[in-house]
């Protein structure tokens, strides 16, 4: 039997829908994932098999083919664990609901599985929710530990789940997942800083220059002899930066979310970032990049 479940992935900050197609047929026992999966996606086979078994269900030894469409984009990340699992359970007949097709049409599922069937936190949930909303998706099922991060987006239903059994019972109509209230605007901007400008004696002109720079977002160069206080002044710059607005904060959080730099409890980044890389930094870690492109092997 064939089943199709929608998921979402990111290319940079841009999202695209991934249709997770699962087919189970009789034949030699085999489990194959196609559609340019990377190593993390390929490894999901083992997580899925074990999680299904440990959730008290049977993982049938049959021929399972999973296709991640569009097949020409490389898929990376562990968020496909959950949609593939749901697809397998539907194709296998563990999930039965006559409204399922209509429901899944407007639903995106993302989440990583652990071996005991728990659903784990994934990276990039905030940009995924924003992009899913843009793509006209009505609801998104995601790990409970990502729920707060997703709750800053309104206009899309956020359904957090914590383990595989919950989602199976939910689709079978025996369990209700509580929607997250997406009007989460209760934001506390912090104004606590470890360093303060009153610790810097003298240097009035440099302080004034930094004040102007902070007010308009201008680039600034401090030249001076060793020990004159350049680094000391620069370290205190975050304490005079203007408060970050909610829109700016969302943009910053999107980027930090992709590389997993957001915390579970307070995912929104409410202070302006201050990055001070060491001078041994390379091109690609400064502007971004990846592995060096190599000629195609196959």
């Amino acid at each position: 039997m064939l089943s199709i479940v929608k998921s979402i992935s990111l290319q940079g900050l841009q999202g695209y829908l991934v249709s997770t197609q699962v087919d189970i047929s009789s034949g030699l026992p085999n489990f194959e994932i196609v559609g340019l999966p990377d190593t993390i996606v390929k490894e999901s086979k083992e997580r899925i098999k074990t999680a299904i078994k440990n959730s008290g269900l049977e993982f049938l030894s049959r021929k399972i083919v999973v296709n991640l469409s569009p097949a020409n984009i490389k898929k990376e990340g562990s968020m496909f664990d959950l949609p593939i699992t749901v697809g397998i359970l539907i194709a296998n007949g563990d999930i039965v609901n006559k409204y399922l097709d209509d429901y899944l049409q407007n639903t995106v599922i993302i989440g990583e599985l652990s071996l005991n069937g728990n659903i784990e936190k994934i990276n990039g949930v905030l940009p995924m929710c924003i992009e899913a909303k843009k793509l006209g998706i009505k609801r998104i099922i995601l790990p409970k530990s990502n729920a707060i991060e997703a709750s800053f987006i309104s206009g899309i239903d956020i359904l957090p789940v914590s383990n595989l059994l919950e989602i199976i019972e939910f689709f079978n109509g025996n369990f209700i997942i509580e929607k997250i209230d997406s009007s989460n605007t209760n934001i506390q901007f912090s104004s606590h800083y470890n360093f303060d400008f009153c610790e810097v004696k003298g240097q009035e002109s440099a302080k004034r220059a930094l004040e102007v720079a902070a007010a308009g977002g201008h680039n600034c160069l401090l030249i001076g002899s060793p020990g004159s206080g350049k680094t000391m002044l620069a370290k205190r710059l975050p304490s005079i930066l203007p408060d970050i607005s909610f829109d700016e904060s969302l943009e910053v959080t999107k980027i930090h979310s992709i590389c997993g730099l957001t915390s579970e409890k307070n995912p929104l980044i409410l202070t302006r970032p201050f990055r001070s890389p060491h001078h041994t930094i390379t091109h690609s870690s400064l502007v971004g990049g990846g592995l060096i492109p190599k000629p195609r092997r196959n």
Binding site: G12, L36, D38, K74, E76, L221, K230, T231, A234, L237, P238, L241, I244, E248, E251, V252, I255, H256, I258, C259, L261, R272, P273, F274, R275, S276, P277, H279, I281, T282, S284, S285, L286, V287, G288, G289, G290, L291, I292, P293, K294, R296, R297
Partner: peptide, 28 residues
Amino acid sequence: MEGLFLSHGEISLAHHGVLFLDELPEFN
């Protein structure tokens, strides 16, 4: 097919904030 995993660098992490390069001439 390597080289597809593009990720952002420090300058994007410093979006809407500050990128501080201490001892600028020491950088490559």
